[in-house]
Amino acid sequence: MKQELEKYLKEQRLKLDVEESEPDIVWEGIRNQLHQNKKQNLPQWFWKVAAIFLFVVSATYFVVNETSDKQMVIVQLSDISEELGNKEASLQKVVNAKWEMVEQELPENNSEIQFLLNELKSLDQIYATYQKDLNNTIDNEPVIHVLLDYYEKKIKVLNRILLEIEKQENHEKTITL
């Protein structure tokens, strides 16, 4: 019986698959190539994990770096030399002793003394700035000089405050008498 060719081909489509390849040889080739590709192309999740890891490491480095800047070890004059350390310690001792005296007798509402106290604050700010410079440059002679000078200036200001206190006390005594 005659049949239209296209219809025949459509109906017999599966029966036309009559040839066999060498399935195991072809599979060996597929397996080897997949294995190679696997070595070359790492899976997508690997790159995602690597990217996250890099991000975490960078972020941690940034945070630690920022924090360490803030917690930077302050270089003291004693770190540079023992002689400078001793000098700073003795000046610091004088400053502390004078400050204790000032604190004990500090009067209220004295504009002159208030002005001098503000001077002390300014000196402290200047000291902090030079302390940073010392951290960056370490053995920097002009900076060392300014730092020692700070103590001397601070002692002078404290002496003036004590003098003012004394003046005020004398004045009060005179008024009482």
Partner: peptide, 18 residues
């Protein structure tokens, strides 16, 4: 124009002729 073949013709032979 219709192209026709014998419906009993072997698919294996058709594959060969293709």
């Amino acid at each position: 124009i219709a192209v026709e073949i014998d419906s009993e013709f072997s698919p294996e032979r058709i594959h060969h002729y293709i």
